[in-house]
Amino acid sequence: MNELLNQLAECVEFGKINKASPFPPQMKGQDGADEITRQLLDNRVKAQEILTSGLMPGMEKVGVKFRENKVFVPQVLMSAKAMSTAMIHLKPFFASGEAKQKGTFIIGTVLGDLHDIGKNLVAMMVEGNGYKVIDLGTDVSTDRYIEALNENPGAVVGLSALLTTTMVNMEKITQEIKTAFPNALVTIGGAPVNDDFCLKIGADNYSPDPQGVVEFLNTKIA
């Protein structure tokens, strides 16, 4: 089974969704994440093991490569698609409680901002590393973050912004989250923000890339 788990990790790393997928060219005609996940489940490998020994190692490699500019957004999206295809088979086990996720991550692009590529990349990477992700979408007001925290006690919140005109909304949202939930952790990201801005608004973490968010969550939750 270790060989199949290694193959699954490779499918995620290189974005091999299923056997019919022509991408990547060097894996054409081979089983993809879809078929291998089903094979593992058919062989009674637990969903938890498939997640931790197959999907997570693959997504971690993608995250590190992306940080080092060795792969770019299209490749990360293919890896995320492979991961999501595998997760379709595993989600019933998480829903039943048979398998456990590390924790819950709430993410959204802040009020006034409709950009979502960066947010989506973070959400995919975090889910692939074993967390339940609640994606609130774009143009998200404080009320929606508060509502999601009420429904998911102990969740970490991620705020994304791409514009200098909308990054200012991060401060108000962060402060209102902290007022309602003093122990809530808030991580921020996006092109115009940095560590100094994070400190200024009272957020707990700034990450310039998705892998940084995963590493922050791993230190705080896992």
Score class of each variant (00 low, 15 high):
128 G>I: 01
88 I>S: 09
138 T>I: 15
173 I>L: 09
97 G>W: 03
110 V>S: 13
107 I>S: 05
160 S>I: 08
89 H>D: 13
155 A>R: 09
168 V>L: 15
146 I>G: 00
152 N>Q: 10
100 K>M: 12
105 F>A: 04
155 A>G: 06
115 H>L: 14
159 L>V: 12
139 D>F: 01
159 L>T: 11
157 V>L: 10
147 E>N: 13
102 K>Y: 11
149 L>W: 02
132 K>Q: 13
172 K>L: 02
108 G>P: 11
174 T>R: 07
183 N>E: 15
133 V>M: 06
105 F>T: 04
161 A>F: 08
137 G>E: 14
91 K>W: 14
109 T>C: 14
137 G>F: 08
163 L>S: 08
150 N>K: 14
100 K>D: 12
163 L>P: 12
184 A>R: 01
174 T>S: 07
157 V>C: 15
93 F>H: 15
90 L>H: 13
93 F>C: 03
140 V>R: 03
94 F>S: 09
98 E>Y: 00
161 A>Y: 09
180 A>C: 03
135 D>H: 07
190 G>V: 04
139 D>V: 00
171 E>M: 14
189 G>V: 12
98 E>N: 10
166 T>V: 14
157 V>W: 07
129 N>D: 05
155 A>F: 01
139 D>P: 00
183 N>Q: 14
134 I>D: 13
129 N>M: 03
178 K>D: 08
166 T>R: 10
154 G>W: 10
125 M>I: 12
107 I>M: 12
136 L>E: 11
127 E>M: 15
159 L>I: 14
97 G>N: 05
127 E>S: 15
92 P>Y: 08
139 D>I: 02
107 I>C: 11
148 A>W: 04
184 A>K: 02
186 V>I: 00
140 V>W: 10
153 P>Y: 09
152 N>C: 10
173 I>H: 12
179 T>F: 06
179 T>W: 01
186 V>A: 00
181 F>S: 03
